[in-house]
Design a protein around this nucleic acid. Structure first.
Length: 423
RNA sequence: GGAGAGGUGGCCGAGCGGCUGAAGGCAUCCGCCUGCUAAGCGGUUGUAGGGGUUAUACUCUACCGAGGGUUCGAAUCCCUCCCUCUCCGCCA
């Protein structure tokens, strides 16, 4: 959510931001409604003041046992007026709130303008990309051959888009989760284990709702949503709170499964492990002071990259252009690994700074000192990392001529000493 | 799921429908006092929105779990919902 005052005082900046994100929004209509609301509030408060004054007068008269019938009747009319005006205020206010929730965050000045992923900017690479693997084979073929991946079982259980990992594949997944969490703990993140079902308010807080309702699994009976990422519960853990400024920057990491309906996805995109309805992910979330958030974004990115370095997986870092940014993000880096079997790059992490956009929605603030007013924190999050695509990369990248898959050294201890996945 | 109790300021805890933004205590911060690791005295301390100011000051409105209702007027009465606690039941 944007600051209502900023929208009011600097509408052009907001208009420009909305344009850069490629979103349609009637800002003038919004501003007119806001103007109308404020004049109604002024009028309502004027009448309430009058009512308060006269009510005291009535009280006084009654104590003195004098007659108050006359002003009492007059006040009845005032009371009716207040009710009418307040009803209108309520309606307009609700309209404005609803509208405000669908205004996207404004891209940071450093974000390149662009209309599609082709306009994203490669920031840097790490490691050698071998464009010619020993035998280009997609991970699902490797995985099924080794018996670590069972796509048929997945679709039996949940339909298309669900997967089953078997034996050493399941172990590999568990090992990766542990390795990632251990790395992030060492980097200074507190590990959390959080609910996978959350309330609508949480989903609004981080910005998934109301815009992306179609992409969410919803348990209507209980009004709960399955989380699309641990970002939602972890960020909302401080909703409504005022954090102690001394405690910032707060860093959390959490493992969770992620549930996404992926409405509208189809074809090649959905094959194998690339796009599934349920996948595991280790997430990092930060709460920080506004002046530090862009430094924290860089270190967050580094923290995610470190996982790939430990796993000896080459990657590149992409800065998203304005229209490729998510609704809530002000700036975002994607980390992509190269899958030699598929001959394409896979997004394994997104590291974003939301500035105060989520903090306003979820009302997360901090106080610099006891005497000072609370300010909104800046929130950031990044995957560290998404499991299935990392597994896909490892399968395709570490495939040996004999058909075995080499397990990255750092992972071996987590695999009970196992060095290869083999038949 | 059933029965009961309760949700008030940073915390504890009062609160006959009218001068209660809210007693009292603790804590906080400021000052005074006192030569001893403390006590005493006085004062201070919420959030949001509007108006106002260069910024303060100032001022208005709202807020006692949430939302409705009754009333000239609600923390206080009525309804609905949420949450917490205790007991019982059920269950991994």
């Amino acid at each position: 959510m944007l600051d209502r005052k900023v929208i009011r005082k600097d509408p052009e900046r907001v208009r420009e931001g909305i344009r850069k994100k490629g979103v349609e929004f009637d800002l003038d209509g919004f501003l007119e409604l806001d103007e109308r609301l404020r004049s109604l509030i002024t009028e309502s408060e004027r009448l309430k003041h009058e009512r308060n004054v006269v009510s005291n007068e009535i009280s006084r008269l009654k104590k003195e046992k004098k007659d108050a019938t006359e002003i009492l009747t007059a006040m009845k009319q005032t009371s009716v007026s207040i009710k009418e005006i307040d009803a209108e205020i309520k309606t307009i206010s609700a309209q404005l709130d609803e509208l405000a929730l669908v205004i996207p965050n404004i891209p940071h000045d450093s974000v390149p303008y662009g209309t599609c992923p082709d306009h994203n900017v490669e920031v840097r690479r790490w490691g050698e990309i071998d464009e010619q693997p020993c035998s280009p084979m997609p991970h699902w073929e490797i995985g099924e051959k080794l018996g670590v991946l069972d796509l048929a079982a997945g679709s039996t259980l949940g339909g298309s888009g669900f997967i089953v990992l078997r034996g050493d594949g399941a172990l590999l997944s568990r090992a990766l989760i542990n390795l990632m969490l251990d790395i992030h703990r060492r980097q200074g993140y507190e590990e959390l284990s959080v609910p996978y079902l959350v309330t609508r308010d949480c989903m609004i807080g981080t910005g998934q709702l109301p815009k992306l309702e179609e992409d969410m699994y919803h348990c209507e009976r209980d009004g709960l949503f399955l989380i699309p990422t641990a970002e939602v519960p972890v960020t909302n853990i401080h909703r409504g709170e005022i954090l102690d400024g001394d405690r910032l920057t707060v860093r959390y990491t959490a493992f969770s499964p992620c549930f996404r309906r992926e409405a509208g996805s189809y074809g090649q995109e959905t094959k194998g492990l690339i796009r599934v309805h349920q996948f595991d992910k280790v997430e990092m979330v930060k709460f920080t002071q506004p002046e530090l958030s862009y430094d924290e974004l860089e270190s967050l990115l580094d923290d995610a990259c470190e996982v790939l370095q430990v796993l000896e997986i080459p990657y590149r870092v992409i800065e998203l252009c304005s229209m490729d940014l998510s609704f809530s993000a002000a700036k975002c880096y994607d980390i992509e690994t190269f899958a030699p079997g598929l001959q394409r790059w896979l997004e394994v992490s997104s590291c974003s700074n939301f500035e105060d956009f989520q903090a306003r929605r979820a009302n997360i603030r901090f106080r610099r000192a006891r005497s000072q007013k609370p300010e909104f924190v800046h929130t950031l999050n990044g995957s560290g990392l998404a499991l299935p695509r990392v597994i896909a990369t490892i399968l395709e990248l570490n495939l040996t001529p004999t058909g075995k898959v080499r397990i990255p050294k750092a992972l071996v201890p987590y695999m009970g000493g196992m060095e290869y996945l083999e038949e």
